[in-house]
């Protein structure tokens, strides 16, 4: 075989760049190769998903157990639906668990926090399986609604019912 310095260095260059790319993906972006087989998908209906995004984390007590895999609106009910992929090792979640959209810090990213529910076979609760629906959901808190509600309550105490009550109905839903 003929050894060519140019071909060798070009080969090294390409290999080095690929290694750099893989390191970037793993170490910097924290990309993990999660396969479909070791996770299961559940979904929940929310009134408002706020700024939840694809691949937002799903957490229990701050520990990531899965990711948001899809967000869409149910075409019949016209309600947002969030699909979550949860790792297979957390398969002991009760169907009574509550999923709420929370915000990390005051202005941080939004994520789904799961509060595990009780499990009692006599009362008909089961473990969540692939394709199940989480019934108990808490929607995202929308800052504008909060402010609107606050203004409304302040105005009511001033007994001036002139101010707009727009959004207060929504705020009720949020709660």
């Amino acid at each position: 075989m003929k050894f060519s310095k140019i071909e060798f260095t070009v080969g090294c260059f390409i290999v080095a760049a690929i290694i750099c790319g893989v390191m970037l993906a793993l170490k910097v972006a924290g990309l993990t190769f999660d396969f479909k087989t070791d996770s299961y998908t559940v979904h929940g209906y929310f009134d408002n998903v706020g700024s939840l995004k694809l691949r937002s984390p799903v957490k229990i007590g701050g520990v990531v157990i899965g990711r948001v895999s899809n967000i869409y609106v149910d075409p019949e009910k016209l309600v947002p639906v969030v699909e979550m992929e949860i790792q297979q090792k957390y398969n002991m979640l009760s169907s009574e668990s509550k999923a709420s959209i929370l915000t990390a810090g005051l202005i941080g990213e939004q994520y789904i926090g799961i509060t595990p529910g009780f499990y009692d076979e006599d009362m008909g609760t089961t473990y969540l399986k692939d394709g199940d629906r989480i019934n108990d959901t808490g929607s995202a808190i929308v800052l504008e609604d909060l402010i609107g509600k606050f203004l409304y309550s302040v105005n009511k105490s001033d007994s001036s019912s002139e101010s707009s009550s727009s959004g207060s109905g929504d705020a009720e839903n949020v709660q």
Binding site: L24, K27, V28, A29, G30, R55
Partner: peptide
């Protein structure tokens, strides 16, 4: 240093 980076860099969006 690393985990702060990993939480804010998204593979698809950023890389």
């Amino acid at each position: 240093f690393w985990s702060g980076m990993q939480s804010s860099i998204d593979f698809w969006d950023d890389l």
